[in-house]
Simulated assay, not measured.
Amino acid sequence: MQQPTPKKTDRPRALLTVREVAELDHCSEKTVRRAIAAGLLEVVRVGPGGRLLRIDPAAHAAYRAVSRW
C-alpha cells in the first residue's frame, strides 16, 4: 500500500527580474547590471547555462538599504 505524499505548503519564492528591479528603483536595467557586476547586488543564475539573472527580494532590499543616499 502506497502512502500519500505530503503536500508542500510553502510556495516557491518569487524572484525578481533585472527589469523588475530597475522599475522598482526607477533606474535603467544597465544600472542594475552594473550593480550586479560590482558585487553590490546578489543574483541567482537560472536557465540553460545559468544565463538568466534573478534577484531575491531580500537581496534587493539589502542592496537598497546600502545604496540609498
Rank of each mutant, 00 (worst) to 15 (best):
Ala65Tyr: 11
His26Ile: 03
Ala38Gln: 08
His26Asn: 15
Ala58Lys: 05
Ala14Cys: 00
Lys7Arg: 14
Leu40Lys: 13
Thr31Val: 10
Pro4Ser: 06
Gly47Met: 02
Ile36Ser: 04
Trp69Pro: 14
Val66Lys: 12
Lys7Asp: 15
Arg34Asp: 08
Cys27Glu: 07
Ser28Asp: 03
Ile55Leu: 03
Ser67Cys: 08
Arg68Lys: 10
Gln2Met: 15
Arg13Cys: 00
Arg11Pro: 09
Asp56Ile: 00
Glu20Cys: 03
Pro4Gln: 12
Ala35Asn: 11
Leu52Asp: 11
Ala38Lys: 14
Gly50Phe: 00
Thr9Tyr: 13
His26Ser: 14
Ile55Asn: 04
Leu24Pro: 06
Thr17Glu: 06
Arg34His: 09
Thr9Asn: 09
Arg68Ser: 13
Lys30Asn: 10
Arg33Trp: 14
Val44Gln: 07
Arg64Met: 12
Arg34Asn: 13
Asp56His: 07
Leu40Asn: 15
Ala62Pro: 08
Ala37His: 10
Pro12Met: 01
Pro6Thr: 13
Asp25Ser: 04
Leu15His: 06
Thr31His: 08
Ala35Met: 03
Arg34Thr: 12
Ala38Tyr: 06
Tyr63Phe: 15
His26Met: 07
Val21Glu: 01
Ala59Tyr: 00
Val21Gln: 02
Ala62Thr: 04
Thr17His: 03
Ala61Phe: 06
Val21Phe: 02
Pro48His: 01
Ala35Thr: 06
Thr17Ser: 13
Tyr63Cys: 09
Met1Asp: 14
Gly39Gln: 05
Ala38Asn: 11
His60Met: 04
Thr17Asn: 05
Val32Asn: 03
Val43Gly: 02
Ala59His: 05
Gly39His: 09
Thr5Asn: 08
Asp56Leu: 01
Pro57Phe: 01
Val21Arg: 01
Val43Met: 04
Leu16Cys: 08
Ala37Ile: 14
Pro12Asp: 09
Asp56Thr: 00
Thr31Gln: 12
Thr5Glu: 11
Leu41Gln: 03
Arg51Phe: 08
Ala65Leu: 07
Leu41Gly: 01
Thr9Glu: 11
Leu15Arg: 01
Arg64Asp: 05
His26Asp: 15
Ala59Trp: 00
Arg11Lys: 11
Cys27Thr: 15
Arg64Lys: 14
Thr31Ser: 13
Ser28Thr: 14
Gly50Asn: 02
Asp56Ser: 00
Leu40Thr: 07
Tyr63Ser: 09
Gln3Ala: 15
Leu53Gly: 02
His60Tyr: 10
Gly47Leu: 02
Arg13Pro: 07
Leu53Lys: 06
Arg19Asp: 13
Arg64Trp: 08
Ser67Asn: 12
Val32Ser: 06
Tyr63Gln: 04
Arg54Leu: 05
Leu41Ala: 05
Cys27Asn: 10
Arg45Tyr: 02
Val21Tyr: 01
Arg68Cys: 13
Gln2Pro: 15
Glu20Tyr: 00
Val66Glu: 12
Gly39Thr: 04
Leu16Trp: 04
Lys7Tyr: 15
Ile36Gly: 04
Ala35Tyr: 13
Arg34Pro: 10
Ala22Met: 05
Val18Trp: 04
Ile36Lys: 06
Glu42Gly: 00
Arg45Glu: 11
